[in-house]
Design a protein around this nucleic acid. Structure first.
Ligand SMILES: [Mn+2]
Ligand SMILES: [Mn+2]
Ligand SMILES: [Zn+2]
Ligand SMILES: [Zn+2]
Lengths: 144, 144
DNA sequence: CATCTAAATGCAACAAAGTTGCAATTACAA
DNA sequence: TTGTAATTGCAACTTTGTTGCATTTAGATG
């Protein structure tokens, strides 16, 4: 499912009967970034090449095809290219100081996903697990 | 942090130097619901009592004070009163048709949370686990 | 490679969501 | 009761996302 270049993008698209267009190439280029980006950023980056409306439509399509993931960072979503079959974002997020801690432990999570998706015949593509609360520093200070 | 009535709301507010106003009482009343609600719903429910702008401002305040949680359901956030016990939201969300399935199985998740919050000395308030993918219906259709 | 057509695009217009500045009102402490 | 800072409502505005439609284009076919 990983898209590394225009050729693999074309393969995924044509496989489902979609066309590889200039707008889609440019949408893909805008997505190349080490960090997840907001829709506004993607639109700004390619403002002379891709119409706003087309950007929305193609991001929707890419998401359905598994080319991009929509993740929530703070109160807004951001978009990123899918890397592996199943991307993950497991965070502890401090409501007081905003610190975000990444969790690596996959053991329990993977078991849980398997059991629950099997139960509902659901095909998972991506998941996100966020725990909001207070970090060790902020837990000690008086004002919650 | 749990708010059960107007008096406890007043306590939390005045504790931080905020006033208990009619608009805030009505904001609180609108939040009383077994289900998380969208901002649009809250605004509609109290359209004759609280101005749209005031609703935004007071929800923001309530969130900072820990009175409400903002959670993501599908692609939109919803609001709910915080509870004493840990709030939880476990969903399967279909990228194609938008269907949201609630998961009730708590077993694996609770183990996982315990182990990871202990590890980082983190005090959890609420958590959210969302799996994006395709529901049983949409998994079968050809243009996935 | 010339032709054909469904798919895709851009544009304009719209709708929904959220923000800002400010004058009028209100909570509440003195 | 009064004084005053906090809060509100309103109007105007920005940002974000959607819809309908005429025009353009990818790419399949021969
Ligand atoms: Mn992460
Ligand atoms: Mn839920
Ligand atoms: Zn913290
Ligand atoms: Zn579905």
């Amino acid at each position: 499912m990983k898209v590394t270049n225009i050729q693999s993008l074309k393969n995924i698209l044509s496989d489902k009967g979609y066309k590889l267009t200039k707008a889609r190439e440019n949408t893909f280029s805008a997505l190349l970034s080490p960090e997840p980006q907001s829709m506004a950023t993607l639109i700004a980056k390619s403002q002379d090449k891709v119409d706003r409306v087309t950007m929305y439509r193609n991001i929707d399509l890419f998401e359905k095809l598994g080319i991009v993931n929509r993740i929530y960072v703070g109160w807004k979503y951001k978009l990123e290219l899918s890397d592996n079959f199943m991307d993950h974002h497991h965070h502890l997020s401090c409501l007081s100081c905003g610190k975000v801690i990444d969790i690596e432990d996959e053991q329990h999570i993977n078991e849980f996903i398997k059991s629950v998706t099997d139960k509902f015949s659901f095909t998972p593509r991506h998941h996100q697990f966020e725990i909001d609360g207070f970090c060790n520093v902020c837990s000690k200070s008086k004002k919650s």
